[in-house]
Computed example of a mutant assay.
Amino acid sequence: MSDQKVALVTGAGQGIGRSIALQLAKDGFDVAVADLDFQQEKAEAVVKEIEALGRKAFFVAADVSKRDQVFAAVDAAAEKLGSFDVIANNAGIAQIKPLSDVTTEDLEKIFNINVFSIVYGIQAAEKKFAELGKEKGKIINASSIAGIKGFPILGAYSASKFAVRGLTQVAAQELAPRNITVNAWAPGIVGTGMWDLIDEELGKLNGKAKGENLKDNVESIALGRIETPEDVAGVVSFFASDKADYVTGQTLLVDGGMLYN
């Protein structure tokens, strides 16, 4: 079917990834739901939600820190769903530590997952677009407000998200001749498990009760509420659409008015 559209979303078993997968399904995409093996039950539930929207979907196990697994996931998406048009490189982790305590192992882990995976996703998508003879393609990456401004005790995380911005800009320039756009989203304080962890770890350092650090940060948001995964999905939906065909190399803040870039 010439108008068929296929997307792959990493880390799609829960949180932001789930919302992105569901939004893309609503936009008319069939979706490969990629996540780690142990997330299969959650991911399969997302597959069912997508199917209930009338789109095709399947779960593909992938550790995004492993290059061969990212390429295999893209291959599976194209083979099982019949095309390949969009990759949303969403999977990532946070680390909460003062910079003085960050270890080599910490750096290796967060860069393998948050940065190397972006490179692999870009490479795999670029290769598949070429194989399929696509006239255009969309690559969309997960950055963060911490990729615009460094935050205390999020040093390694901030560095990894700054790196995503740089990779997005470079890939946008390199792939523009092939009409492949590369953009990133930069969320603020999203009501997911990641911010529950940040709140807890901040509390250990500053002595504030559980929930207080999150409350303090939410109060700094101009729009006055915590961000939802659906808020992020709306931005990804735009980048994946024809409406963003002339937008590339950009990292769009979606933070309710915390930073201004």
Rank of each mutant, 00 (worst) to 15 (best):
S2T: 10
S2D: 10
S2I: 12
V9D: 03
A12V: 05
G13E: 01
R18E: 10
A21D: 04
A21R: 09
Q23E: 08
K26T: 10
D27I: 14
G28V: 08
G28F: 13
F29C: 04
D30K: 04
V31D: 04
A32R: 03
D35W: 02
D35Y: 02
D35F: 01
D37V: 14
Q39F: 06
K42A: 11
A43Q: 03
E44W: 07
A45C: 03
A45G: 08
V46A: 01
K56P: 04
K56Y: 03
A57T: 00
F58R: 05
F59V: 11
V60R: 09
R67H: 11
R67Q: 15
D68H: 15
D68A: 04
F71W: 01
A72G: 10
A72H: 01
D75E: 12
D75W: 08
E79G: 07
G82T: 05
I87W: 13
N89L: 07
A91F: 00
A91L: 05
G92E: 07
I93A: 07
A94P: 00
A94S: 15
D101F: 07
E105R: 01
K109E: 14
K109H: 10
I110L: 15
F116M: 15
I118H: 12
I118C: 09
V119A: 07
V119S: 06
I122N: 06
A125C: 00
A125V: 00
K127A: 15
F129N: 01
A130R: 13
K134W: 11
K136Q: 14
K136P: 01
K138W: 08
S144M: 07
S144Q: 12
I145E: 07
I148F: 14
K149I: 14
P152S: 12
L154Q: 13
Y157V: 04
S158Q: 11
S160R: 09
V164S: 11
R165K: 09
G166N: 04
Q169K: 14
A171G: 02
P177R: 00
P177T: 00
R178L: 08
N179H: 07
W185M: 14
G191H: 03
G191F: 01
M194P: 02
M194R: 02
W195D: 01
W195H: 10
I198C: 02
K204E: 00
N206P: 00
K208D: 09
V218Y: 10
E219I: 10
A222N: 04
T228N: 07
S237A: 12
S237Q: 07
A240P: 13
S241W: 03
D242Y: 07
T248H: 05
G249W: 00
D255Q: 09
G256M: 08
L259K: 06
Y260A: 15
Y260W: 13
Y260F: 15
N261S: 15
